[in-house]
Design a protein around this nucleic acid. Structure first.
Lengths: 146, 146
DNA sequence: TGGGCTCATATGGGCGTCAATGGGACGAGG
DNA sequence: CCTCGTCCCATTGACGCCCATATGAGCCCA
């Protein structure tokens, strides 16, 4: 499988590291992705991660604008200034930096959520709540008696 | 990686020096950049820094204008009159001059923000505010509970 | 079908290296 | 003579690299 699917919650250890689920690492390996581009998501309080091609997409989008415009500069500020390259250690773990904690509210556990061509890092409670809300509101699931 | 990405905030020491993040220095070394061209940004209250090729780009742009036009003169005023060459010390630190402080409002800490082909020096609060605003206005990020 | 075996994943921690920071010494210039 | 900038060295804390343990799932075989 070459898409990021499903979700899993892992613990952050004493050194601030967390294991990326092996299913996700398998997709990365399959795509030959060594370095991960991480950025603050535009919609959710989550960090989105994918290979460098995600950054390329964003840059292409910016390049359609006048480079001296305020909008182009502000977008670059978010895309470039708000994005980081990260790499996993030999065991497939990543360091949960303040950059990630501050934006997501993550403290001691991380929920990894597959998003097809990328995956996201969520605070477990926030993920649960947002998924439940989306299921109820956006898909109009009928209420069922308990 | 050959682009300036992510952001980091470092302290200014008693002698007015601040360490340039090693990730940025690595990009500079990769490009063989010894001297840095620094100028006041056109859009933000920040100092933009890159190798001399950034100055070349600006000069090329000006040369396309009528040299007697007011616009060309004003641009030169900013590019040349508002720009300086700086170099780092052996430990990769740069001196935060009044030129930088006055324009940015920087006092005791500096936020380095990657901008792809260059990077910027911001007053930490100003950077935070501008990025948050851009994320909200240009990317329509969802409000998140605090 | 049940027991035990094996392997992979998740997790814990030691240790060396490097980056960020602090501060002294020296030399040029006002 | 004093000030400022540069060079050099010291400290400390963070991070990367490596190895160790465990928990649990799947598998084989009786």
């Amino acid at each position: 499988m070459n898409r990021f699917l499903s979700n899993a919650t892992n613990k952050i250890d004493a050194k601030g590291r967390v294991s990326v689920p092996s299913a996700f690492r398998a997709v990365l390996a399959r795509n030959g992705t060594e370095e991960l581009y991480a950025c603050q998501d535009f919609v959710f309080p989550a960090i989105s991660m994918a290979g460098p091609e995600m950054l390329d997409r964003f840059e292409k989008m910016i390049s359609t604008l006048d480079p001296f415009s305020e909008k182009a500069n502000r977008m670059s500020l978010v895309i470039h200034g708000g994005g980081v390259f990260m790499k996993l250690d030999a065991e497939g773990r990543l360091l949960v930096t303040d950059f990630i904690r501050d934006f997501t509210g993550i403290t001691d556990r991380v929920t990894f959520a597959g998003r097809g061509d990328h995956f996201q890092l969520w605070e477990p409670g926030a993920f649960e709540a947002m998924q439940a809300r989306s299921r109820a509101e956006d898909f109009r699931v009928a209420e069922r008696p308990t």
